[in-house]
Design a protein around this nucleic acid. Structure first.
Lengths: 163, 163
DNA sequence: CACGAAGTGAGACTGAGTATCAAATGGATC
DNA sequence: GATCCATTTGATACTCAGTCTCACTTCGTG
């Protein structure tokens, strides 16, 4: 779990206390293996008989998002999820609609494309967001259950089609 | 209001009745001039002393979204909005964080880029979504109030910064 | 007009997220 | 270890978006 350590590090170096609750959330985030919602963590906490308040979980997630340790995602279903990610560079997310697993995708060429669109329309672009949904190699091959599947299932994979 | 007509047409040719309520919603959507939330329409209805139920507005929006006459948008603030758009071709939205106005942006090169990303990661991509937020020419020039501004203000332009 | 289907409004309900506030805890200092 | 203050926490109330239900109304058709 050196991912957990990294999160705690981030908290600490930003001047926040690494309390037991925050460590707990960090641990759950680090081992999520994909995207997760606040409700997922709450549920998991309850299942594991951990005493952590609702508000505390929301606060911890807000904090981690602020530190860019996790990032908020809008699932095609319309609900909000988070993914663990690398705070260093601007990137996007590729999310498996089968098992919920997610990959970071470098911005790469997109930045240029976005600039171009902005220029063509006369807009001064401030933020852009690209979200990709599909099936990961395992799910595409029909072998979804991979550990990740079990706990991500609650929030993954509704409304795969669309537009 | 030939935009309104177009929407009614779409309802009609999909086999739905173009009732008074739906015409009303169509009219509000057509004259929105930017993105709007369900709450915006409800509020506008109340202000204009129109008697239309909460559920009816949600149902109408759902219906229009299904016909691809409007499309759902996730604002950077995390709330859900809709924009009127061309049902014909796959495209994305460029939204002004100042006045709420929005432009359709053709998918263009993005499709290729998305394919490439999918291939590189071994994912079978099902959906992608690009959302661009920034300042339109008017807002960038410091002349925001343009008619559109007044009614879009309730839902536009929070949290302009970010990653 | 009569009928069944489609549409509607009121209001109950649900679930996510926020706000409040008193109590607990952390960590620095003596 | 006792004291102090800032930070964190949990319980709970609250707000708000969106859904569901159900009785009632309206629509189109024969």
């Amino acid at each position: 779990m050196d991912q957990t350590e990294r999160i705690i590090q981030a908290l600490d170096s930003a001047g926040y206390q690494a309390t037991a609750n925050r460590r707990l959330v960090a641990g759950m985030v680090a081992t999520s293996g994909g995207h997760f919602t606040a409700a997922d963590l709450l549920e998991r906490g309850r299942r594991e008989r951990v005493n952590i308040g609702r508000a505390t979980v929301f606060r911890a997630l807000e904090l981690l998002a602020e530190l860019h340790v996790i990032e908020r995602l809008d699932l095609p279903s319309g609900s909000h999820a988070y993914v663990l990610c690398d705070p260093a560079e601007h990137h996007h997310h590729l999310v498996c609609s089968g098992c919920g697993r997610s990959e970071d995708v470098a911005d790469g060429e997109l930045a240029r494309l976005v600039d171009e669109i902005g220029q063509r329309n006369g807009y001064r672009i401030e933020t852009h967001r690209l979200e990709l949904f599909g099936k990961c190699p395992d799910c595409a091959a029909g072998t979804p259950p991979n550990g990740a599947a079990s706990k991500a299932s609650s929030s993954a994979g509704q409304r795969p089609g669309g537009h």
